[in-house]
């Protein structure tokens, strides 16, 4: 399904590449050589800000986008949600993004080393933790974290390329360090994985439909789906997922993009993130 999104993106990219571009007309200015080109100002027509955000941010950034549009008349926030690794690849392959909000530093760092994001640009804007979710009728009668290793249990997690999938595997590795779980805990749990989903929201969907017995997702996802049962992962085993956000170097609207990030980091923006189950980074 996401390849539809890709196609749309591709089409959009093609269109914007061959569509009428505001040709910068040479404007003679006093005191300057007549050949100086003045770039077209972005304020002339309705502006669209392309925000690429991790799938886990779907609810929160939709609300933030609305508020930002209300505060900035004429601005449209176009949101593209997917697994951060998908977004990272899209941007690397030339997708037009103005802002990138990733669920981990790995994907952001790839863009920094690829010269698409300035070295010091990424700023952490929230933290998140993970939790085990179960369908409301708990078909496999999962009561503890230990139950996840019970043979035959159907566990769905995100793929190991997806930030949520990386974090989940890291937590399982942490639990395996504890003698009460046993050194082979991670192996036994991973043997129960019936599907590696492409983003964290798909994990939630499979558990919501009752097709999987359990899933490992962000706390924010479980808050967005309140009918699901949850099992907490103790802090000493859990991971603190730091989400970085940054302006892309190639954006034609750096000021608007920076304004969006400022709003995300503002008390109002952070309050929205908190409402959606994230831990704000600024107190």
């Amino acid at each position: 399904m996401k390849h539809f999104a890709l196609l749309v993106l591709l089409a959009a990219a093609l269109l914007s590449a061959c569509g009428p571009v505001n040709a910068p007309a040479p404007v003679p200015t006093a005191g300057l050589p007549t050949t100086t080109l003045i770039p077209p100002t972005a304020t002339l027509e309705p502006r669209t800000l392309n925000v690429f955000a991790a799938a886990s941010l779907t609810g929160a950034f939709t609300e933030i986008g609305h508020n930002f549009e209300t505060a900035n008349p004429g601005v449209t926030v176009a949101l593209n949600f997917a697994g951060s690794q998908t977004l990272g690849t899209q941007i690397t392959q030339g997708a037009l993004a103005d802002v990138f909000a990733s669920a981990n530093h790995t994907e952001m760092d790839k863009l920094v080393s690829g010269g698409l994001v300035q070295q010091d640009a990424p700023r952490d804007f929230l933290t998140n933790k993970l939790v085990v979710i179960l369908p409301s009728n708990n078909p496999a009668n999962v009561q503890t974290l230990q139950d996840l290793s019970r043979p035959g249990l159907k566990l769905v997690i995100a793929a190991d390329t997806v930030p949520a999938g990386k974090y989940a595997r890291q937590i399982l590795a942490n639990l395996s360090q504890d003698p009460s779980f046993g050194a082979d805990f991670q192996t036994r749990v991973l043997a129960n994985v019936v599907s590696n989903e492409n983003d964290v929201k798909l994990v939630v969907a499979k558990v919501q439909l009752g097709e999987a017995d359990a899933g490992i997702v962000y706390i924010s996802d479980s808050i967005a789906a309140p009918q699901l049962l949850t099992i907490d992962i103790p802090m000493n085993f859990n991971v603190v997922a730091k989400y970085p956000i940054a302006v892309l170097i190639n954006t034609p609207k750096p000021a608007l993009a920076a304004g969006f990030i400022t709003y995300v980091l503002s008390p109002a923006g952070q309050a929205i993130l908190k409402k959606w189950g994230f831990t704000p980074i600024t107190p």
């Binding site: 399904m1 390849h3 769905v156 994985v193 019936v194 599907s195 590696n196 989903e197 492409n198 499979k206």
Partner: peptide
Amino acid sequence: EFGATILFAGNLE
């Protein structure tokens, strides 16, 4: 076949 598979059968190597 892609779309129906990834939704109905999931993804496991």
